[in-house]
């Protein structure tokens, strides 16, 4: 509203100052609005929703295969057993924090670092792992698989 008042007063001496003021006000306004506009645009990465992390579609995963996913800052592993059952665990080996993998031929979870083995219930069955893998809960809605801690 300050500007409105200025427009009414017709004094050419002031024009320069007014231009500077007007210009820099708009510049500042855009400096304020620029981050806000960028902020409003949702980022590509999936929004955090740890309580219900959508990790895969049932059609993506065949029986006897696995898929890695990210939960928080740590890797997780989703396994579909030969019987078609879904299981999800933290993929962090309890021995030295390596990332474990599913071994189809032996039908178990395996850590390449020290040959640690876990069965498909996450229980450590051989090798150095001192504790079982942390299991996650799985819910399947239609054809989408959700994982929660």
């Amino acid at each position: 509203m300050a500007e409105d008042n200025f427009f009414q007063e017709k004094q050419t001496r002031r024009d320069f100052l007014n231009y500077i003021l007007g210009f820099s006000f708009f510049a500042l306004l855009s400096a304020v609005l620029y981050p806000i506009f960028l902020y409003l645009k949702p980022p590509k990465a999936q929004e955090v929703d740890v309580s219900n992390l959508k990790i895969a579609k049932t059609t993506e995963i065949e029986n006897g295969s696995s898929k890695m996913f990210k939960i928080g800052n740590k890797p997780g592993i989703l396994i579909r057993t030969n019987e078609g059952e879904f299981k999800a665990f933290s993929a962090v080996c309890t021995h030295l924090d390596c990332t474990v993998q599913y071994k189809k031929d032996e039908n178990l979870i395996w850590c390449a670092c020290h040959n640690g083995r876990y069965d498909l219930n996450g229980k450590n069955i051989s090798g150095p792992p001192p504790a079982p893998l942390t299991p996650y809960n799985i819910t399947v809605q239609k054809d989408e698989i959700f994982v929660s801690k």
Partner: peptide
Amino acid sequence: LYYKGSADIAFESVQFISAKVKF
């Protein structure tokens, strides 16, 4: 716009705001 007021994801959503959302 991004905050989620529930105990299991509140922290993560704030983390998301300060890490993933531009500005």
